[in-house]
């Protein structure tokens, strides 16, 4: 037998939880908007992906499944670099860590070390699954791959430091990193070549090349799918472009991180969420 008086209390209690979480959620105004836009961009990106499905990818002399699987594996390898710092930023331990007098680069590298080591450990099995299960065809140039790794690490470290610098101040999603990361989903060519975007809106693919992540995926794919040799002048130019991005982003990231840290110290909010 249902006890309706207990049921109504239970409903009120469940509502109280929902109300509390809604009130908490709406205090993060920027996050509220970004969540809604992220959903919309996600739908759009999957829709384009569905249209593109199973076409060959001449840009990297490969088939779609190899393009997609390598893209996902690269994502899993390099993205923890950008997410590691942000996710592991614990405001309660941050003050104590800063009081040890540790330098910013060591702090940044240290925070990301484990997520990255873990990604490296899972990188090979992911590739093996791709090769043996899905028939992914790799054509790797080791030197280019190593260079791609260095350049992409610098790009993502820079982005990561920008993100954390802002997050130290805003305490929630920072609009700049969010914009870059959300656009990446649609424009960086994770699951379809960026040139394909032009069939929906002519010229839009040129925007992609202003996104740092596009270069990360592009350089890795050149090295792993096309075995692009670094001695080839065209490959050199592509790597040089990526390197310029890294050279710009890394110092900007460092300065933004320092700015965020000082700003949080000025506002007295270093140990806050």
């Amino acid at each position: 037998m249902i006890n309706f008086s207990n049921l109504s209390v239970a409903v009120r209690q469940v509502t109280a939880f929902a109300k509390r979480d809604f009130r908490d959620w709406r205090t993060y105004k920027t996050q509220m908007i970004t969540q809604v836009i992220t959903i919309a961009i996600g739908i759009l990106s999957w829709a384009i992906n569905a249209v593109y499905r199973n076409r060959p990818v001449p840009e990297y002399d490969t088939d779609y499944i190899s393009f997609l699987v390598v893209g996902l594996v690269i994502g899993n390898l390099v993205m923890p670099i950008s997410q590691g710092l942000e996710r592991r930023l614990n405001p309660w331990t941050l003050e104590n860590i800063i009081m040890t007098g540790i330098s910013i680069p060591v702090f940044v590298a240290g925070q990301m070390a484990w997520p990255y080591i873990f990604s490296l450990i899972t990188f090979i099995p992911q590739l093996l699954i791709g090769i043996f299960w899905f028939g992914v065809k790799l054509s790797i140039n080791p030197l280019s791959t190593a260079l791609a790794f260095i350049i992409s690490a610098m790009i993502l470290l820079g982005l990561s430091m920008i993100s954390v610098g802002f997050r130290l101040v805003t305490k929630s999603t920072d609009p700049i990193t969010w914009t870059i990361n959300t656009l990446q989903q649609l424009l960086a060519g994770i699951s379809f070549p960026v040139q394909f975007l032009d069939s929906f809106l002519p010229g839009v693919s040129s925007l992609s090349w202003f996104l740092p992540q596009t270069w990360v995926y592009h350089l890795w794919r050149l090295s792993m799918l096309k075995a692009a040799a670094i001695t080839d002048p065209i490959t050199q130019i592509e790597f040089l472009k990526g390197f310029i991005f890294a050279l710009i982003l890394f110092p900007i990231g460092y300065r933004t991180f320092k700015w965020g840290l000082n700003r949080a110290k000025k506002d007295g909010t270093l140990g806050w969420f």
């Binding site: 003050e95 800063i98 009081m99 000082n262 110290k265 000025k266 007295g268 270093l270 140990g271």
Partner: peptide, 10 residues
């Protein structure tokens, strides 16, 4: 916190 360098004075 100012003495600990965690807060900057104005």
């Amino acid at each position: 916190k100012i003495l600990c360098t965690l807060v900057l004075p104005d």
